[in-house]
């Protein structure tokens, strides 16, 4: 697995999950990965009626601060899945 340098202290998956669940209404986020590469799955009713682009934008705007700068904690999101909860 590749790794990318960062000064971030603490658990990146936890930081991602907290940032997403704090910003995307009623969401549950599952985050896995390491070494700068993460896989994210988010379930939220907020995605209903939204395109894939709009849904991903919602998530990315919540975690943008973790992807900025020269040595960000998140180098790449390998896969981002968004869906509405099953009813």
């Amino acid at each position: 697995m590749s790794s990318h340098p960062t000064n971030f202290q603490g658990s990146v998956p936890d930081a991602l999950r907290e940032a997403i669940e704090g910003q995307v209404p009623d969401s549950k986020a599952v985050v896995s990965g390491g070494g700068g590469h993460y896989t994210i799955e988010v379930v939220s009713p907020a995605f209903a009626g939204k395109s894939m682009l709009e849904s991903q934008r919602l998530v990315y705007s919540a975690i943008a601060h973790l992807m900025k700068g020269d040595a960000p904690p998140v180098h790449a999101v390998d896969s981002l899945k968004t869906r509405v909860p099953a009813t």
Partner: peptide, 23 residues
Amino acid sequence: EWPTIPQLFIDGQFVGGCDIVRS
């Protein structure tokens, strides 16, 4: 307003990144 590369634009509109282009 998209945090990752690559980014595809068609007809002046932002289409998305790798995931979206694949889908």
